[in-house]
């Protein structure tokens, strides 16, 4: 029992009687808050801006899922009707859930792995090449030129992909990459992966750069033979925080994907073949002005991301402090 106050009470450890006593608890917290007031001062500028421009809007948006809101009239409370419609009546929603899951399962792990692996490979190269390759792999995230992919996937025989495949004899006639529902999802996934070396990738690059070099020297003395052993025994265990950061960013981009599909194959896509939850929310919110319903969709998405985050945290647990 007496061990339970081991950590932060510096001045005086509480006795067993005092723990659990509400009055002492409160005064203990109050003392802790006063002792750490410099922390709160340093946090304050961020916290004030964050509260005003993020927390308050988020709290205001939470109840919207339970309302009927068309942006003109004041939101009308309808209880769980939106969710009832979503799960019971809306067939497209179920398609969207399926597409989003397929999308997340495909692009999420692959892009996560790619980010780490490529960042590591780049780290093995000498100085100037590091900058060059980091730039090359990151530049898609900076430029937003995915409309070029429209020309590549263009449906006539002049589209580059069709032209190349016909030239080499893989196909006999042009394929409708962006309008044939068999190929749409594949095309969108490819472009999404092309775009995916973003924040996570750069955080890994920074992480590799920050690792203490003497650990590698020590490793070499201790008998580490090659790059792979070095990666597994030295590099990976000291990358925990970056692994977590990148995981969160990957979850976000995998689950909220929708921009690529919207720009590449239109909204809605043929047969809803690349219709993610985000597209569904976009469709209801900004095409039909049913903001309440669209909010309900976003809430389902948020819950899914929370679950994914929880899962990833369990998996990465051994690397996190």
């Amino acid at each position: 029992m007496s061990n339970s106050t081991s950590s932060s009470a510096e001045k005086r450890l509480l006795t067993a009687d005092e723990i659990g006593n509400k009055k002492y608890d409160r005064s203990y917290y109050w003392r802790e808050i006063k002792r750490n007031k410099s922390c709160y001062f340093m946090l304050a500028p961020f916290l004030i801006l964050f509260t005003i421009f993020t927390v308050i809007p988020v709290i205001m948006s939470l109840p919207m899922g339970f309302t009927d809101f068309d942006m003109v009239h004041f939101p009308k409370f309808v209880g769980i009707e939106n969710f009832y419609t979503l799960f019971i009546e809306d067939d497209v929603f179920m398609t969207a859930v399926r597409i989003t899951l397929v999308f997340a399962v495909f692009t999420g792990p692959i892009s996560y792995f790619l980010c780490f692996f490529l960042a590591w490979l780049i780290n093995e190269l000498p100085g100037f090449l590091k900058t060059l390759f980091t730039l090359i792999f990151y530049i898609p995230s900076m430029s937003n030129v995915y409309y070029i992919w429209q020309t590549i996937f263009s449906g006539d025989s002049y589209g580059w992909l069709n032209a190349v495949l016909i030239n080499f004899g893989f196909i006999t006639g042009p394929k409708q990459w962006l309008t044939d529902s068999t190929y749409i999802l594949g095309c969108v996934i490819v472009v999404q992966l092309w775009l995916s070396l973003g924040a996570g990738f750069l955080s890994f690059r920074a992480g590799f750069q920050g690792i203490d070099k003497s650990m590698y020297e020590a490793g070499a003395v201790e008998g580490i033979k090659n790059r792979w052993q070095e990666l597994i025994y030295i590099t990976l265990p000291s990358m925990g925080p970056q692994l977590m950061f990148s995981a969160v960013m990957t979850i976000v981009s995998a689950f909220t994907a929708g921009t690529v599909s919207q720009n590449l194959v239109g909204l809605p896509s043929t047969d809803y073949a690349a219709h993610t939850l985000m597209n569904h929310a976009q469709d209801y919110g900004w095409t039909r002005y049913e903001m309440g319903y669209a909010s309900a969709i976003c809430m389902v998405l948020f819950v899914a991301m929370l679950a994914a985050n929880y899962l990833i945290r369990k998996i990465l647990n051994k690397y996190i402090d």
Binding site: L43, L47, F50, I52, F53, T54, V55, I56, P57, V58, M60, S61, M64, F69, M71, V248, M249, I251, V252, F255, T256, M278, A281, Q282, G285, W286, M291, A294, S295, I297, C298, M299, L301, F302, M305, L306, N309
Partner: peptide, 24 residues
């Protein structure tokens, strides 16, 4: 506060811009 940061990264909503507009 640490949890709050991660939550805010994960949160997505189509109406957040409307609410931000109202605050601003």
């Amino acid at each position: 506060f640490n949890e709050l940061i991660v939550l805010s990264l994960l949160y997505t909503s189509n109406v957040i811009y409307i609410m931000q507009y109202m605050v601003i």
